[in-house]
Nucleic acid binder design. Structure first.
Length: 115
DNA sequence: GTTCTGACTGCGA
DNA sequence: GTCGCAGCCAGAA
């Protein structure tokens, strides 16, 4: 790849943003990208994960803006993500997150809460 | 070098 | 609620 320092750094920020998602909570690709300082680069986030991402990365907490799993229902990845989320107390039905607003409240849960 | 593709998003109908 | 379209960026062929 052209692995420019900028791109690599961006990837690291994205990874950090994903790791910052607390268990039992979910975040959208766009949200993660924004937190990483890359607004509008949700696709980059998705691509990073699809190309391997990082070991131990809670990628299953990353959903689409609709709060749905990015994988098509019935897919292997879809099934795995659903299981992982359920293990953390997040119920998923019909590819949709239940018991929690689809719109990830990352802002409030992560960096912008109480205070 | 150009072209295609993709774990996406937002808006309008 | 769903469906379609355009915009967007980065990597792979």
């Amino acid at each position: 790849m052209t692995a420019t320092p900028d791109t690599r750094q961006a990837a690291q920020r994205i990874y950090a943003a994903i790791r910052a998602i607390p268990a039992g909570e979910v975040a959208g690709y766009g949200e993660v990208a924004r937190r990483a300082g890359l607004p509008g680069r949700a696709r980059l986030v998705a691509r990073l994960l699809s190309t391997g991402g990082e070991p131990g990365l809670p990628w299953h907490r990353v959903l689409r803006s609709d709060g749905r799993i990015a994988f098509p229902e019935g897919s292997d990845g879809h099934r795995e993500q659903r299981e992982r989320l359920r293990a953390e107390g997040v119920e998923v039905s019909g590819g949709r997150v239940v018991g929690r607003r689809a719109r990830p409240t990352l802002d409030e849960t992560l960096w912008g809460p109480p205070r």
